[in-house]
Computed example of a mutant assay.
Amino acid sequence: MAKKSLIQREYKRQKLEEKYRLIRRSLKNQIKVSSLSTQKTREIQRKLQSPPRNSAPIRLHRRCLVTGRPRANYRDFGLSGHILRKMVHACLLPGATKSSW
């Protein structure tokens, strides 16, 4: 089980990312669409760096829904490997078949 503080930190990052998503998207579109001078693009890039670091989507991690573990997550199920294996053996995941692993 992951520490509660780490899970809460991840939750805070998700909230910040949602808050600044539109601002980041509009600034990136301004850089892509317009053929501005280099000085103007640098100015837009500075604005893009002004939001908090934790609002960047690259800083988000997928975590296991049951344990909160940040590693070895399967995107299809949202679970870490050992929890996925336990649930498949217990026939709790529809469509997943037991293999010899």
Score class of each variant (00 low, 15 high):
Q45L: 02
L48W: 02
V66I: 08
K28I: 11
K4T: 12
R62Q: 05
E18H: 14
C64W: 10
V88N: 14
A90K: 13
G95F: 04
A90C: 07
R21D: 11
N73P: 09
A72G: 14
H89G: 11
T97L: 09
K4S: 08
T41P: 00
C64A: 13
Q14D: 05
S37P: 04
R13Q: 08
R9Q: 11
R59K: 10
S50A: 12
R85W: 03
K32L: 12
M87S: 07
F77Q: 13
Q14M: 06
Q8C: 00
K32M: 05
S35V: 13
A56K: 12
R71E: 15
R9M: 06
S99M: 13
A2L: 12
S80V: 06
I44H: 06
Y20S: 06
K40S: 06
A72Y: 14
W101N: 15
D76Y: 08
K47E: 03
Q39E: 11
P70M: 13
C91H: 15
E10S: 08
A56R: 15
E10F: 03
D76V: 12
G81T: 09
R85F: 03
K19V: 06
S35N: 14
S35M: 10
I44S: 04
K47R: 04
K4V: 11
K15V: 03
Y11T: 04
L60R: 06
Q45N: 01
R71Q: 12
L22T: 15
P51H: 00
I44Y: 05
D76L: 10
G78T: 01
S35Y: 13
I83T: 11
G78Y: 01
K32R: 12
K98P: 08
L60D: 02
S26Y: 10
E18N: 09
W101K: 14
R59P: 03
T41H: 07
K98A: 11
K4M: 05
G68D: 11
I83S: 08
H82N: 15
G78N: 02
T97A: 06
L60C: 02
A90E: 13
I23Q: 09
S34T: 09
L93R: 02
H82W: 15
K32D: 10
I58M: 08
M1L: 11
L36Y: 02
